[in-house]
């Protein structure tokens, strides 16, 4: 039975850790904007400028 006292204490400490994590998340503004991150995650990661050939760029700039 005694082991329960230790386990419950431990579990409460772990739960407290999650509470602190939540408070940290609110403090760093992670709950301030509920929309943009949801959109942002769908963007492609590819850097825009690297892969394309230079010719194409000149063509675009000519006009």
């Amino acid at each position: 039975m005694n082991v329960l006292f230790i386990l419950i204490t431990l579990s409460s400490i772990v739960a407290g850790g999650f509470l602190i994590a939540f408070i940290w998340a609110v403090k760093t503004g992670q709950f301030d904007d509920g929309h943009t991150p949801a959109v942002r995650i769908l963007f492609e990661d590819t850097k825009v400028s690297d892969t394309d050939s230079n010719n194409e760029e000149e063509l675009t700039e000519n006009k």
Binding site: G16, F18, L19, F22, I23, V26, F31, D32
Partner: peptide, 12 residues
């Protein structure tokens, strides 16, 4: 944010 903190504590 205040409300979120309170909500977090109460929920916890």
């Amino acid at each position: 944010r205040q409300l979120l903190f309170k909500l977090g504590v109460a929920g916890f």
